[in-house]
Design a protein around this nucleic acid. Structure first.
Length: 266
DNA sequence: AATGGGACCTGCGCGC
DNA sequence: TGCGCGCAGGTCCCAT
């Protein structure tokens, strides 16, 4: 489940490897991953284009191309980019001017590729709230004060704040000692400050360790990200809290699993 | 308006 | 054994 740290890791990896290279051919093994335009226009728009710039907006990767178009890649849960590639089971393969292949894999076919004239006009982009790094504490406090909703789903609400998914929401709330079902507007000033710091510290640390390889996430080289060893609650249901030994609890919020320590998080 | 649930998918682990 | 079921979660969409 690539979230901001994983997508940023892939962005940095891509920047080192494919920037300035030309896409010489695109082999589509599973057309469903292409959401727009049609298959023919997609291949035509990419073939011969040079990759000029690689951006990330929340969990979305964007390649700006020499022909003015952009390729937007959302990996969703099981999407992967792997270089050098050439695997038989890839959904799509980019052939590059260095003679190598960049594979796009996606076991569950949730990921989305879009070739766009203007990525800024994309509905998904327009719906994104600020990333944590674009906010200061005062703004964050103000945003929370207007929300009555439960804090954990709110952290995952991309229109509210963008880049955080299920895994980091759990880790962040544990670090901030805040119960996932607390209503946002009931947080005290000190808790808001602690939460803001936890968001920024954890996302930064996760990027430093190249993300969390649970399930399918790997970085561009195929290597795993190393942040899993710092996880305190995610996926640790029933295991002792690393701070107080109380068993970690798992509840359901909005159809997603939420892990927390019922003693440490108030 | 905010919230909840289902849909989209596939592979894996579990229980019978 | 083998099968069916539930579960995993990012986003969209619809209903309430």
């Amino acid at each position: 489940m690539p979230e901001l740290p994983e997508v940023e890791t892939i962005r940095r990896d891509l920047e080192k490897v494919i920037l300035g290279k030309k896409i010489t051919a695109v082999c589509v093994h599973h057309p469903k991953v292409i959401r727009e335009p049609g298959l023919a226009a997609f291949k035509k728009g990419l073939t011969g284009a040079v990759i000029k710039r690689i951006l990330r907006k929340a969990k979305l990767l964007i390649w700006e191309l020499s022909n003015g178009k952009s390729l937007a890649i959302h990996l969703k849960m099981t999407g992967q980019l792997v270089y050098p590639g050439g695997a038989k089971n890839s959904r799509l393969a980019f052939h590059l001017s260095d003679g190598k292949t960049l594979d796009f894999n996606d076991q569950r076919l949730f990921a989305e590729l879009r070739l766009l004239d203007d990525w800024r006009a994309l509905k998904f982009i327009r719906g994104l709230g600020p990333e944590p790094a674009e906010l200061n504490l005062e703004q964050f406090k103000e945003m929370l004060s207007h929300k009555k909703t439960r804090i954990k789903p709110l952290l995952m609400d991309q229109a509210f704040i963008s880049g955080i998914g299920n895994l980091y929401a759990a880790e962040i709330l544990f670090r901030a000692k805040i119960h996932p079902e607390r209503r946002a507007n009931t947080l005290k000033a000190q808790e808001k400050a602690l939460l803001f710091k936890a968001i920024n510290d954890i996302l930064k640390a996760a990027i430093r360790h190249a993300g969390s390889s649970v399930d399918d996430y790997v970085r561009l080289s195929g290597e795993k990200g190393g942040y899993v060893r710092y996880h305190k609650v995610y996926g640790r249901q029933g295991k002792p809290c690393l701070v107080c030994n109380t068993p970690i609890k798992r509840i359901n919020q909005g159809g997603r699993g939420t892990y927390f320590c019922p003693r440490c998080q108030k």
